[in-house]
Nucleic acid binder design. Structure first.
Lengths: 327, 327
DNA sequence: CTGAAAGCGCTAACAG
DNA sequence: CTGTTAGCGCTTTCAG
């Protein structure tokens, strides 16, 4: 920057002001300096600027649930993409961080060491208490997940209750009576989807059979074993509502393996409407959540939080996408 | 840091040294300072340290091919995960950046402005020339893609020629004679896979019929139209080798829709062995590429490059995974 | 409108 | 082993 200043015959202050678009500098000077900078391929050192200005233009993002490992959930990655877009449009950077389960302080370190101004956590899993704890220390934090009443951190999430209700209701209207639920209700989001499921059953006067509830994590391979066991033992079920599309896809695979036809013998509805779901045969009915909106909302809430505004939640609408698997 | 120094009754230098584990400081002092820092929840400001030390512990990563948008390729994301792991194990940070097609200088800006020390580009697509151009300017850059002879940037990639050859050969041994190829050979990786395909056909004395070659991008919806057209017009084909699993899955979906059985009527092999492929019915045969190794290699080559060492390539072995779709 | 001066938080010579 | 000193590259008062 000193070079530019010398060549332009002005002081470093003027260069700094010109390059940051200060209105104090007349357009002519400003333009000359900018041209010079471009010629020399000069770019202001963001780190130094941040240090002096005492702020950061970077936020940390982490995706819970080993999402970038095998059989991770493409849905969470699509939220990641949306967050990246939203951050980008605000001129902010995204520091992608792995969760270190061996170092519980890892998250706050990122903020305390001044590397990021705040954190976006994608996927809540069973971390609710830990997240609440972190938020209580004043850590600027926002989470994609279920909107829990006792959350002191800002949350963005789909309307899981409604989503579960609609999916189940749809299956009931399609004539199903024995609807299985696949999903681990230890996860708040899944718990709400299950509540919606239970409510729809109740309204239709159908029994909530606990044997038809299987608590498996997204992508668990034991899904196949359960389906096999049910078929072997003649357990009666005419539909499955899965708490994620990857789970639903595994289920359909397992059913197909055993010669059970979807949707004619068993109907299936998933959750998240991941990209691939539309391209399968049978194509998968699913509950869609608005990912782009989610990304924008997460960033917005985080910026609010970083500006000291109070925590709030943002529940997004869901939409049932009917496809062949539940026809 | 000044606070810690005062409280510990030492100078800032000593604190700095203690906290960075300098062997100059005796263990006793060092420990006392560390304890104090923990009590006060003090963390060194990484930005300031970087500024002074004149280096960065962050590398920029970008994924080409709109990978975090709908119908993106899960394979590239799994490489992203592996890169994140590798970076993490070296204590480095990952700045995830979107590609801005409207701003071709965006990539170099990240480095020039001192935000990152180097770049990892995941997915080469048709960017070869642009990447070569960037590398020519001295930008520390490493790419996941095809190992092209004229690449001046370091490349890590699978052995696409071998992968394509093995997949095709496998189909031939399964008795297939009319093997279609789906993939856009404008992409260097796909071009090599196609060469492997062509070689296997040639060795078996089979005709390379250009009508059976469809150049579609990963996840293109027109795949379905082509399959429909072929079936309507009675085009004969008994196998499909797809240049990616997502393409293969779309193809199987389209075939299923038309009542064509896989593998009994048409056998299918994909590429990348994405997580979901094992869970489909029929499960998808695919060419696996070692993603964890890839992530580690990308980071290693980048660090070499940043240290001024000459560019080199690293071609990783592939492995054909035989599953039901080609049985 | 512009420059001089101060200093963000830290590390690395250098001289004890 | 430790403290002093001098910046890293930038922005921002504060005085012109």
């Amino acid at each position: 920057m000193a070079d530019i200043a010398r060549l332009a015959g002005v002081s470093a202050s003027t260069v700094s002001r010109a390059l940051s678009g200060s209105p104090l500098i007349p357009e002519a000077t400003s333009q000359r300096i900018r041209d010079l900078a471009r010629q020399l391929n000069y770019k202001v050192n963001v780190g130094a600027a941040n240090l002096r200005r005492r702020d950061v233009n970077t936020v940390g993002v982490m995706v819970l649930g080993d999402p970038m490992k095998a059989m991770s959930d493409p849905f969470l990655l699509s939220i990641l993409g949306a967050v990246a877009d939203a951050l980008d449009s605000k001129g902010m950077n995204l520091l992608l961080s792995r969760i270190k389960t061996d170092d519980p302080e890892h998250l706050s370190t990122l903020v305390d060491s001044g590397q990021v101004g705040g954190l976006i956590v994608i996927g809540q899993l069973t971390w609710h208490d830990r997240l609440n704890h972190l938020a209580a220390t004043g850590l600027p934090l926002v989470v994609w997940g279920a909107c829990l009443p006792d959350a002191i951190y800002p949350v963005v999430g789909g309307d899981n209750l409604q989503g579960g209700y609609e999916a189940t209701n749809h299956l009931i209207r399609q004539g199903c009576r024995r609807i299985a639920f696949f999903g681990d209700t230890q996860h708040p989001e899944v718990r709400l989807r299950h509540q919606g499921y239970a409510r729809a059953l109740a309204e239709a006067g159908l029994e909530l059979d606990p044997r038809l509830h299987q608590a498996f994590l997204f992508g668990d391979t034991r899904i196949r074993e359960v389906i096999d066991k049910w078929l072997d033992q003649g357990e009666s079920f005419d539909a499955v509502f899965a708490a994620s599309d990857v789970t639903a896809i595994s289920i359909i695979g397992a059913l197909g393996e055993r010669g059970v036809a979807v949707p004619s013998q068993v109907k299936v509805v998933g959750y998240d409407d991941i990209a691939i779901s539309a391209h399968l045969h049978p194509s998968l009915s699913s509950v869609r959540q608005p990912t782009q909106t989610a990304g924008a909302a997460l960033v917005e809430l985080l910026l609010e939080r970083m500006a000291g505004q109070p925590s709030r939640a943002n529940m997004l609408p869901t939409e049932l996408i009917r496809r062949e698997s539940s026809a």
